[in-house]
Design a protein around this nucleic acid. Structure first.
Length: 937
RNA sequence: GCUUCGGUGGCGGAAUUGGUAGACGCGCUGGAUUCAAAAUCCAGUUCUUUCGAGAGUGUGGGUUCGAUUCCCACCCGAAGUACCA
């Protein structure tokens, strides 16, 4: 007899929703606990069984916390701006709003079936105008801020203007674009408004600049660094080229050190922190200034090996370096121009894949070594990146392999500065175990001595400073897309102007076409109504643009990470129309206590959102700088794909065992047509796709076998398993338990539908313990000692496991518990009561049902969790001695409070302790303060 | 190349601070029940074996009374990152 999960699950889902059981209140005397999932992008494909993994884990934890007396906030929402909806719109002409709403509806249905305890009254969508109003508001705030390194925080731009008026910009330690000139207060006051604007733009945290961007022509948009993988777009895998464009950027680089330091204060997985550290890429070294022959400016080169300064034999600049044209001699001009042209044609991908080729051109110019005053030839080469450091390298061929290869290839001299080191074949790049020679005052020193001495000397002659460099780049914030937040910006005399926050939100206009315009402008250029009237303070028709009262609007939209960088704050007070969240709600919920999501967002969302929160914190808009105390990454659930093999150039398929060394091509087939023995149902396959209809299938023992392979679940691999099907067949509780049972939450693990019968029969066993022929049957006596022991063992284990996020072992503990109760034939009321509460975070529906059968008419959700009582699980002091590998061991209860000599005495005098072991007399007893004691002869 | 994580039966995976390796589940084998099947229940299931035992947690060493666990070297796999000066 099995329980009717369909009836039970839909009954309780309705009950929870109707009674708003999981609604969190903003004012409550209970301690708060905030559990959040990374909100999904609602794609058209719906959910597969991999998606809910993290949601199940966070749901278990939320329910557990609720049982432990916390006021739990567990919200859910949608990251609903994004590229797929837009591409679908381009293909079909349907408005992204429509398809997004449909997808969300489908997601919601699928989520609801799994019995999550989300507080849906707080649902948010980043594409709702009431939400993106605040994204726009924060953008304006970023625009009106600059970064002050002295106090290490961002501040309002008005303060900066004050400083400029009083003492110019020479003495401020701000994060600024490199093209800044110095001025004093008198000069500032005399600057034109336009010039002032341009200068301020170099300080603003949201700024416009002409930059090299990752341009993807296929997607018609620029991409952030983390959206480019191996020189191809992350979405779609299209080619990405470098291109100069005027774009909005966010000065996240100002926050590099804080983002790095802040990692110490948050309990996030170490691998993820490590990824962020690598991405920020802090390196410490020196900035060395080289005078140039016949040119007034200096080349600045960043190096981490200033100790090798006397090994410098040439300078290499990136082809894009601004000085290149200035220092190139007449006779080298043609070659240099050719080289620059050639390297600018190369895509990012070419440059990466072509690492081995050594190329470069001598400019004809020379720099002066700051300490030896020797002439150093200046070369250009594309192994030097304009985007890292200063785009200039002081080349030390004896100590750096790339410089070495370059010098050998172009026959540039190499000076050896390492004592007793052979550099005839390769450079010596180790920082340890060397002694310097040929290095004047550094001779005889090691790395640390030489580094600090060299920096001191450089400072003395004003040719260098100590410098910390970061890889982290400013983040490009403009997207040439339709389906994103519009900027609250119009242009007046080519200067961006922020629309007053009173008039937000600036609502995304409708367009006829979602493609770029014919002139190559972003899709918003297709809108007929996208101009700003400064008199009426509203959006008006384009045709009215006169650049006096009516100005053109910004045509770009914001990237996907804009809306997701602060959404955790909005859940605290999602319907507030006066502010993104009220001060009271922010002060009550403060930060996310547990954040669950995938590690693929390590260098994207999880970095941007940390930055964004620091920024809000600097302006006293949020109460804490770190928005998520603890984060766990759920691993991916992998699919079990099926392949069949076609003989190349034919229409003939071979069963897997018949392939041997035939020349075959592997083809994915839908796993629906394959049974657990890897046999393929050929008839179903033929009906699936016409290409198989007339194909020949070579059988093996009258059967056709496929090859199985574990890989990422995806529609294109035909290996997705839909949670709806599992819910239909086994129920949500079984699915929840099984997903947790598969393995550690943070590990990738393959899905195997066959294995689900284990958790399914566990729930049936549990149900049947208290049912006879579908009738609820329990006894009201005091539980037996054995029953209590089983129960409390389980309480102890499960509570520990939940706190450690070890949900797979918790499920095992439940299975052991039910097996033991089964052999005890236990149907005790009090045991069931505690077990119901204990299991309810994992399998809420069945527990809620049994709970109501016990006669309670309140939901189980807020009942106190059972408390472990160690009295019930005590064991006897000494068990039988066991012979093991020629040794004896005893099991002792840890609670014995005897000293070691007393324990020895007990053991040696114990009636079961032999005097001899393997024919030898026992002479020595070694006590290890553990459960088990060895006696060694 | 660099950084990080991992390697345990046919499979997913357990194993407190070093203390009876393989919990729990799948699969498989045998049995009960059934006209039969499904479902359910019971027993067995690391390998070798001359049935006494022996070997065994990627490989080779080391520390220890004792190592899946700690240390060293190597092999393999996954993820991230990369002309980063």
């Amino acid at each position: 007899m099995s329980y009717n999960f369909k009836e039970v699950e839909s009954k309780w889902q309705k009950y929870w929703s109707k009674n708003q059981v999981y609604k969190a209140l903003n004012n409550n005397s209970l301690p708060k606990y905030y559990v959040m999932d990374m909100f999904p992008y609602p794609s058209g494909a719906g959910l597969h069984v991999g998606h809910p993994l993290g949601y199940i884990a966070s749901d278990i934890y939320s329910r557990f916390k609720r049982h432990n007396g916390f006021n739990v906030l567990h919200p859910q929402g949608y990251d609903s701006f994004g590229l797929p909806a837009e591409q679908y719109a381009i293909q079909t002409g349907r408005h992204p709003v429509e398809t997004t709403n449909e997808n969300i509806k489908r997601y919601r249905e699928q989520l609801d079936r799994l019995g999550f305890s989300f507080d849906w009254s707080r649902e948010i969508r980043t594409s709702n105008k009431d939400y993106y109003k605040w994204t726009q508001w924060m953008f304006i705030k970023l625009y009106n801020s600059w970064y002050d390194y002295d106090s290490d925080k961002s501040k309002p731009v008005e303060e900066l203007v004050n400083i400029f008026e009083k003492r110019g910009n020479t003495n401020i330690n701000a994060c600024v674009s490199d093209s800044i000139e110095f001025f004093n207060s008198e000069e500032w006051i005399l600057f034109s408004e336009s010039k002032k604007e341009n200068i301020l733009l170099c300080y603003r945290l949201a700024f416009l600049s002409e930059i090299d961007v990752n341009w993807c022509s296929k997607l018609g948009t620029v991409l952030a660094n983390d959206e480019v993988v191996d020189g191809l777009s992350e979405r779609g895998g299209h080619e990405v080229v470098r291109k100069k464009m005027t774009q909005w950027s966010i000065r996240i680089s100002a926050f590099s050190e804080r983002l790095l330091e802040g990692l110490k204060n948050i309990d996030w997985p170490d691998p993820l922190k490590e990824m962020q550290r690598n991405w920020i890429g802090k390196s410490e070294g020196a900035l060395v200034k080289f005078d140039i022959e016949n040119f007034e400016k200096k080349i600045e080169a960043f190096t981490t090996r200033v100790d090798t300064i006397f090994g410098v034999t040439f300078i290499t600049l990136a082809p894009e370096h601004p000085f290149v044209s200035k220092i190139t001699s007449k006779e080298n001009k043609n070659k240099v121009d050719d080289y620059i042209l050639e390297s600018s044609k190369k895509t990012e991908r070419d440059r990466i894949s072509d690492v081995k080729t050594i190329s470069g051109v001598f400019t004809g110019g020379h720099a002066i070594h700051p300490l030896t005053k020797k002439k150093l030839p200046i070369w250009i080469s594309d192994y030097v990146l304009a985007s890292y450091g200063t785009g200039a390298v002081m080349a030390v061929p004896c100590g750096d392999q790339r410089d070495y290869n370059f010098a050998k290839f172009f026959k540039i001299p190499i000076i050896n500065i390492f004592k007793n080191v052979d550099i005839s074949n390769e450079a010596y790049h180790s920082k340890d175990k060397y002694e310097l020679i040929n290095s004047k005052f550094l001779d005889g020193m090691n790395f640390h001595e030489a580094t600090s001495k060299a920096i001191k000397e450089l400072i003395k002659v004003d040719k260098g400073v100590h410098k910390v460099n970061y890889k982290l780049r400013d983040a490009v914030f403009s997207r040439q897309r339709y389906w994103g937040e519009p900027f609250p910006v119009y242009y007046k005399n080519n200067h961006p102007v922020m629309i007053n926050e009173k008039y937000l939100p600036i609502i995304l206009p409708d367009v006829d076409k979602y493609l770029p315009t014919e002139e190559g402008k972003p899709p918003l250029g297709n809108s007929k109504c996208w101009a700003w009237d400064i008199k009426k303070n509203k959006i008006v028709e384009n045709s009215l643009i006169d650049n006096k009262n009516i100005f053109p609007m910004e045509l770009n939209t914001m990237p996907g990470w804009a809306g997701s960088s602060w959404y955790f704050n909005r859940y605290m007070d999602p319907n507030n129309s006066d502010f993104f969240a009220s001060k009271e709600s922010l002060d009550y919920w403060r930060e996310v206590d547990l954040y669950v999501g995938g590690s693929e967002h390590a260098t994207g969302h999880l970095l941007y959102s940390r930055f964004w929160q620091y920024f809000l914190y600097d302006h006293n808009l949020v109460p804490v700088p770190d928005y998520a105390k603890k984060l766990i990454n759920q691993g991916m659930i992998l699919g079990n794909s099926a392949y069949i093999y076609r003989l190349n150039g034919s229409d003939k398929y071979f069963s897997y065992g018949l392939i041997k060394d035939k020349n075959v091509q592997a083809i994915h087939v839908d796993i629906k047509f394959v049974n657990s023995n890897n046999e393929l149902n050929i008839d179903e396959l033929k009906n699936w796709q016409p290409q198989f209809y007339n194909s020949k299938f070579e059988l093996e023992n009258n059967k056709f076998f496929v090859k199985r392979e574990v890989e990422k679940m995806s529609k294109s691999k035909y290996n997705v398993v839909n949670p709806d099907e599992i819910c239909d067949k086994y129920g949500a509780d079984t699915l929840r338990l099984y997903e947790m049972f598969l393995g550690p939450i943070d590990q990738a693990k393959p899905w195997n539908t066959a294995g689900i019968s284990g958790t399914f029969s566990f729930l049936n066993k549990f149900w049947n313990l208290f049912h006879k022929n579908d009738i609820f049957l329990i006894n009201d006596q005091e539980p037996s000692k054995d029953e209590l022991k089983t129960l409390h063992k389980t309480i102890n284990k499960v509570c520990q496991d939940i706190e450690n996020f070890s949900f797979n072992t918790a499920v095992s503990a439940f299975m052991i518990c039910v097996n033991e109760l089964n052999s005890l034939k236990c149907n005790n009321r009090l045991i069931l009561k505690d077990l119901c509460i204990l299991l309810s975070p994992f399998a809420p529906h069945i527990c809620e049902e049994l709970w109501s059968k016990l006669g309670y008419n309140q939901s189980i959700s807020n009942v106190n969790y059972p408390i472990f009582n160690p009295e019930f699980v005590k064991e006897s002091n000494i068990e039988y001695p066991v012979s093991f590998n020629g040794k004896l061991r005893f099991k002792l209860n840890l609670e014995i409070s005897l000293n070691i000599d007393e324990i020895k005495k007990i053991i040696l005098n114990h009636e079961k302790t032999p005097q001899y072991l393997n024919g030898k007399e026992i002479k020595k007893v070694i006590i290890v303060p553990r459960k088990i004691i060895n006696i060694v002869c």
